[in-house]
């Protein structure tokens, strides 16, 4: 019975994905990526075709579509955000890439350095895709020429993993670091739906239901994604502390939290994973524009996003609404019946069976979630 329910949820989620893709008149590209101008993706979208024509089997384009992900920003760099932002173009041209024999694209750092060198003393238009709702924007970054008497830092330890870009930087440090990463990696997030263990690890650490999303954990253990990955990591950290990085959609900020996992290996909250639980678009209040005009150092004040539209990126609000309404209508009847079903099963089981069942950490199907 439970397996059937879980399969139903997966079918439902897949149908949402398919509907969204079809509604955008693009058969393959994930709706989350369709805010990116097609010309910025052309170089990457062409290479898999070439690879296929050579008889090499290629994976889904949504899994390989990549950008220069911001992995670190300086304290004084306010234009970019780590984790969420990807550079997908310069001056409305794609990131220069080269393809290997398997059809996979990699950034041409030599040409990228040339672009920055050419813009010394000017601003460079950088095309950014953000994982917050899958939105696209432009940032104008000032490229400051390096003074002639500036000396480059040369590491005494030769590190094979960090080769030079092949061309001397004629500009000062930009205040951010990047790594070529698939865009899909930023969708591996776990939405806190509710706290189910009073005074449990989640509640003690201050996780906020509906508002919070776990986007990563110490050492990047969540980087590969997967519906059960968080659950597996938490279970493996029983009796230990675990550092999680949490995004709050109301305050539009990321904070680190430390949770102490008990001997049962549970986080104490239900989490949602998948298309419906990606980071939503940030919505600012109308007063922000006025505030920016009056204040030299404005702090935008995000407005709480209603849960009805929270998971729907702004670029495609229309298609999912009917689907969402259906699930809302079901909420009053079907889930209660399912809860009764599960509770009935628990009451009849033996004590040993109960403890074994509690380790399963099964997701309640009506919310497309998993329990940790």
């Amino acid at each position: 019975m439970f397996r059937i329910a879980k399969n139903l949820v997966r079918t439902f989620e897949q149908s949402v994905q398919d509907t969204l893709a079809l509604s955008q008149d693009s058969s393959n590209l994930d709706a989350f990526f369709q805010s990116i101008p097609p010309n910025l993706l052309s170089a990457q979208l062409e290479s898999p075709v070439d690879a296929v024509s050579e008889g090499v089997k290629h994976t889904n384009v949504n899994e390989t579509l990549s950008g220069l992900r911001i992995v670190w920003v300086d304290e004084m760099q306010f234009q970019l955000q780590s984790f969420f932002d990807y550079i997908v173009g310069f001056n409305d041209d794609p990131v220069p890439v080269v393809s290997n024999q398997h059809g996979f694209s990699y950034p041409d750092y030599r040409r990228i350095t040339s672009i920055f060198n050419e813009h010394c003393g000017r601003t460079l238009k950088v095309n950014i895709w953000s994982a917050k709702g899958g939105t696209f924007r432009d940032e104008y970054i000032s490229i400051i020429s390096k003074e002639s008497d500036d000396l480059d830092d040369v590491s005494l330890n030769h590190d094979e993993r960090r080769p030079s870009s092949g061309e001397a930087h004629q500009f000062q440090a930009l205040g951010f670091k990047v790594q070529w990463t698939p865009l899909i990696a930023s969708t591996f997030t776990y939405h806190i739906l509710n706290v189910n263990i009073p005074d449990g690890p989640a509640q003690s650490a201050g996780l906020i239901p509906d508002e919070d999303y776990i986007i990563g954990c110490q050492d990047g253990l969540l980087a590969t994604g997967g519906e059960t990955l968080l659950q597996d990591i938490v279970r493996s950290r029983a009796n230990y502390d675990l550092v999680l990085y949490v995004y709050n959609k109301v305050s539009d900020c990321v904070r680190p939290i430390t949770v102490h996992i008990g001997p049962d290996g549970r986080l104490g909250c239900n989490v949602g994973y998948g298309f419906l639980h990606r980071i939503p678009t940030v919505k600012h209040c109308p007063q922000q524009a006025q505030q920016q005009g009056q204040d030299d150092n404005p702090v935008p004040v995000p407005v709480p996003v209603e849960s009805e539209t929270a998971f729907v990126p702004s670029a495609f609000t229309a298609p999912p609404v009917p689907t969402k309404k259906k699930s809302k209508n079901k909420k009053g009847t079907q889930p209660l019946a399912m809860d009764d079903y599960f509770n009935e099963g628990r009451d009849k089981s033996s004590t040993a069976a109960k403890s074994a069942e509690s380790d399963i950490l099964a997701p309640p199907p009506q919310k497309q979630s998993s329990s940790d």
Binding site: F78, T224, R255
Partner: peptide, 30 residues
């Protein structure tokens, strides 16, 4: 009760992913 003051203190903070295990390819460039 959600502590908004505490949350707003993290507004300008960015997570450092340079030491994370990653599915990205190639070196971290700056």
């Amino acid at each position: 009760e959600v502590d908004r003051v505490m949350l707003n203190k993290w507004r300008q903070w960015n997570v450092d992913m340079t030491t994370w295990r990653s599915i990205g390819s190639g070196p971290i460039m700056e």
